[in-house]
Design a protein around this nucleic acid. Sequence first.
DNA 1: CGGGAGGTTGATCACCATCAACAACCGTGG
DNA 2: CCACGGTTGTTGATGGTGATCAACCTCCCG
Lengths: 244, 244
Amino acid sequence: MAYTSFRDDRGGGQSSQHRVTSRPSPDNEAWETLRNAQGTRRQSYAAHDVIYFEGDDANCLYEIVSGAAMLYKLLPDGRRQVVEVLGPGDLFGFDMDAYHDCSAETLVATTALVFNRRDIEASSAAQSHLTRCALQQVCAMHDHAVLLGRKSAYERVASFLMRFVPDRGTPTCKGPDDEEHDEGTVTLNMTRQEMADYLGLTIETVSRVISDMKRKGVIRLEKHDKVVINRICSLCQLTGAHAD
Amino acid sequence: MAYTSFRDDRGGGQSSQHRVTSRPSPDNEAWETLRNAQGTRRQSYAAHDVIYFEGDDANCLYEIVSGAAMLYKLLPDGRRQVVEVLGPGDLFGFDMDAYHDCSAETLVATTALVFNRRDIEASSAAQSHLTRCALQQVCAMHDHAVLLGRKSAYERVASFLMRFVPDRGTPTCKGPDDEEHDEGTVTLNMTRQEMADYLGLTIETVSRVISDMKRKGVIRLEKHDKVVINRICSLCQLTGAHAD
DNA sequence: CGGGAGGTTGATCACCATCAACAACCGTGG
DNA sequence: CCACGGTTGTTGATGGTGATCAACCTCCCG
């Protein structure tokens, strides 16, 4: 499939529960102050709204309040790569250069805070928070590079699912609380196409892997975008991050 | 091939000419001051020295003065992904968390400045430079995600080679100065294995693609790691970044 | 009930990984 | 000088994973 232009907005979309991994919290008052600065505004988007396009002028920094968004890049022949999936608290849009290096689109209905570039640059406390977020994003991108460069389709999907399980699959993961009942439910909030473009696969491969996991009893589905993981530890073994 | 532990140091290694794309310059005096701070020291490494390992404590920020280095991650079964290739002026090692998320290794003989974490955090001007570098790294990682997720082996190698050609293949590229003579020479400073692990390929595939480019007259080789590009524009067409 | 988008499944193919052998290169030591 | 062993790179044969092409299903909403 190839992407060339806009998508139509289909309204609706339930509230998201995205990326549960810890992200830097703005520990100081300065960020709170900035949220109420005169240049700052609050913006609402429907599901699959375009926030900006690659190449647009980059004057604003966005912080997701609720919902979820993705950043993606297109090749001229229509191939798409989703480079980041973002949830509440994540910052994006401040692309170093004068123009955005990616397009940004919501996954579900989303509200975001839109900061003025000038305001951020003026506050050193704001800068500090921005730095922390940027460094954290770099780490996330490193993990994703491993996924894209070295993992099998199966491992990619498993890693993707584990990403939304709180406190599990992380280096500090202590295993299940209850050895026998190690279930978890994750809501994807993404179409198969979006997942495929994030994982560097095709829609068919993603679908096949998910079906296969279902067949093997690793997961079960409710409504295509709600995945119940039967044994979280089993799924985690499939991510490639553990010595079998 | 699998990686498990140290490599022996083979000395030597010529001076590098790495990543010619523009990177943020520390525009203020503050960074210069920091270079001479008491906590800052200058360190020399031989080719293929390990600077630190994934999981080590992260107390220092490194700036490459001359030479080149790479950051990589390993999966438990030995698969390796090189996530960044760094040249003079690049910063690394400041990984947000208390531990390094990647291993760092030199590609050639390298000298680096080693800053104290405390010193960086104390200076807001230093923070500002760090932020700029981090944001620029995020953009670079986005490009690399596209390469790993969506490009063919041929396109990956072509993109990789173009990366070292100054002022070409960038959005602002104005084409060749001289339509007839559009040659360029790049020194790789990396083994085939390192290239393969950076591009998400195998050593054999990298070798084959390079041989094929040679056969097709796109490039020619001098000594395996010195590539003469016969027509830069032709190579650029092969990166996938242009509409055929 | 009908239409359309999104998702699943099947058959086939191509690209790249894998396995294996060989060649080129380089320093060492006879 | 050449023989050598080790490392790195090249080339060939083969196979598997995931892409592609195509049909069908399912859910939703009118």
